[in-house]
């Protein structure tokens, strides 16, 4: 464990806590893409299957349970909670995310570290996480003004993988046979997708103005 990975995990946790706060405090999920939340639930379920087979550390197991439980709770809330689900922007959240799932599954069958069930699912979860934010970014552009908590949620979500990239660079130089190229390439793509969001987020922070994404 190095400081970059720890900061990355904490940033990821903060993003989830901000989203839970927004939904719980405002009883609303306006501006949040249910499709992105479903993709994240799929990412965690596909990646953390080793929760019961490989024990790495208490920290690792606890965080896996937190990520799986929170992502499922958010999806349940947006689908079933009688108050929250009324604020879901159903007509704006129209990204065909099933194509993302199919494409990532196909890619995982072609490119993975070892052609085994767990490795294919792990690669699938890495590829899917890289593109899972797309429905959310599309929704933000369509819904014009972005409320603060939603903007902060997306910001921390993008920042966490940037910390992981620093973690992979650190591990590459400090560990002998560290090869995590599937994660690295996907992580770079994932962080790059946030580039324009980060730009507009920085502009709104500098001008102390409302976050506006161009349509």
């Amino acid at each position: 464990m190095n400081i970059f990975r720890f900061l990355g995990d904490m940033t990821h946790l903060i993003s989830i806590l901000i989203l839970l706060l927004k939904i719980y405090a405002t009883k609303s999920c306006s501006g949040i893409s249910l499709k992105t939340q479903e993709l994240y639930a799929l990412v965690f379920l596909a990646r953390y299957l080793d929760l019961f087979t490989d024990f790495i550390s208490v920290y690792n197991s606890v965080m896996k349970v937190v990520f799986i439980a929170s992502s499922l709770a958010i999806v349940w809330c947006m689908r079933r909670h009688r108050v929250v689900r009324r604020s879901y922007d159903k007509e704006l959240d129209t990204f065909r995310h099933y194509f993302l799932v199919a494409a990532c599954l196909a890619l995982a069958l072609l490119v993975q570290e070892k052609f085994t069930f767990l490795e294919v699912l792990w690669a699938f979860s890495i590829y899917l996480e890289a593109v899972a934010i797309l429905p959310q970014l599309v929704l933000l552009q369509r819904s014009g003004n972005v409320d603060n908590l939603t903007g902060q949620y997306v910001f921390f979500l993008g920042a966490y993988r940037a910390f992981y990239i620093l973690n992979w660079i650190y591990r590459y130089f400090t560990e002998t046979h560290f090869s995590r190229w599937i994660s690295c390439v996907s992580g770079l793509v994932q962080t790059a997708l946030y580039a324009d969001f980060f730009y507009y987020y920085f502009i709104s922070w500098k001008n102390n103005s409302k976050l506006q994404l161009p349509a």
Partner: peptide, 10 residues
């Protein structure tokens, strides 16, 4: 020490 090739990251 966990093998670094193992999935020790979240």
């Amino acid at each position: 020490e966990v093998q670094s090739s193992a999935k020790d990251e979240l």
